[in-house]
Lab assay of single mutants.
Amino acid sequence: GHYRIRINGREFEIRGISEEEIRHLEEALRNGADEKILKEIVDRLRG
């Protein structure tokens, strides 16, 4: 998958993330885990 997200007015492209991972992120966001989720995304993109 290849997705664009906007955070604090800046747009980011996220590549190589699966539909299942996105559902997991959405679930966590609904549970209020904003900073933790951003850290997970950044860590994943770093490799």
Rank of each mutant, 00 (worst) to 15 (best):
35 E>K: 05
12 F>T: 01
17 I>T: 02
26 E>G: 03
23 R>C: 06
13 E>Q: 03
37 I>R: 08
17 I>C: 08
26 E>S: 05
42 V>G: 04
31 N>I: 10
10 R>T: 15
44 R>Y: 10
28 A>R: 06
36 K>D: 11
40 E>A: 12
18 S>H: 04
4 R>I: 15
6 R>F: 13
19 E>W: 10
39 K>F: 15
37 I>D: 07
22 I>L: 07
8 N>S: 04
40 E>C: 06
37 I>W: 09
43 D>L: 05
30 R>D: 07
23 R>F: 11
27 E>D: 13
10 R>P: 00
26 E>W: 05
22 I>T: 03
14 I>G: 00
17 I>V: 12
20 E>Y: 06
29 L>W: 04
3 Y>P: 12
11 E>W: 15
42 V>S: 03
9 G>D: 06
39 K>L: 15
2 H>L: 04
16 G>D: 09
27 E>M: 09
1 G>A: 03
32 G>E: 04
35 E>M: 11
17 I>Q: 02
31 N>K: 11
16 G>P: 03
11 E>C: 08
37 I>F: 10
45 L>F: 08
9 G>E: 03
3 Y>L: 15
33 A>G: 09
35 E>N: 06
27 E>Q: 09
32 G>Y: 07
18 S>E: 03
26 E>M: 08
2 H>R: 09
4 R>N: 05
37 I>T: 12
36 K>M: 13
4 R>C: 14
7 I>W: 03
10 R>V: 15
30 R>W: 05
4 R>P: 06
33 A>N: 07
38 L>W: 07
31 N>P: 03
27 E>I: 07
36 K>R: 14
1 G>P: 15
11 E>P: 01
35 E>V: 08
44 R>H: 07
16 G>Q: 05
38 L>M: 10
21 E>S: 08
25 L>I: 14
17 I>W: 04
12 F>Y: 15
7 I>R: 00
38 L>V: 09
32 G>S: 05
22 I>P: 00
21 E>I: 05
20 E>R: 06
34 D>M: 12
14 I>C: 05
17 I>M: 06
24 H>S: 11
21 E>D: 14
24 H>F: 14
1 G>V: 03
39 K>D: 05
16 G>V: 10
29 L>P: 00
6 R>H: 08
29 L>T: 03
3 Y>R: 11
3 Y>A: 14
41 I>N: 01
32 G>F: 06
39 K>N: 11
18 S>C: 04
24 H>K: 11
18 S>Q: 04
40 E>F: 06
14 I>S: 00
44 R>P: 02
35 E>W: 12
22 I>Y: 08
7 I>G: 00
4 R>F: 11
15 R>P: 10
14 I>A: 01
12 F>S: 00
15 R>L: 07
26 E>N: 06
31 N>T: 13
19 E>T: 11
5 I>D: 01
35 E>T: 09
21 E>R: 02
5 I>L: 02
34 D>Q: 07
6 R>Q: 13
27 E>R: 07
35 E>R: 04
28 A>E: 06
25 L>W: 04
41 I>Q: 02
2 H>E: 07
43 D>M: 04
38 L>T: 02
34 D>T: 13
34 D>I: 15
14 I>P: 00
8 N>C: 10
3 Y>N: 10
46 R>F: 15
24 H>E: 13
18 S>W: 02
43 D>S: 07
9 G>S: 02
37 I>Q: 11
11 E>A: 02
42 V>M: 10
37 I>V: 11
1 G>W: 02
45 L>Q: 04
42 V>N: 03
9 G>F: 01
47 G>H: 12
3 Y>I: 15
7 I>C: 04
17 I>K: 02
12 F>G: 00
21 E>A: 09
12 F>A: 00
1 G>Y: 05
25 L>K: 00
27 E>Y: 05
2 H>T: 05
1 G>I: 06
28 A>T: 11
37 I>N: 06
2 H>P: 04
21 E>W: 07
16 G>E: 06
26 E>K: 05
43 D>F: 01
32 G>K: 05
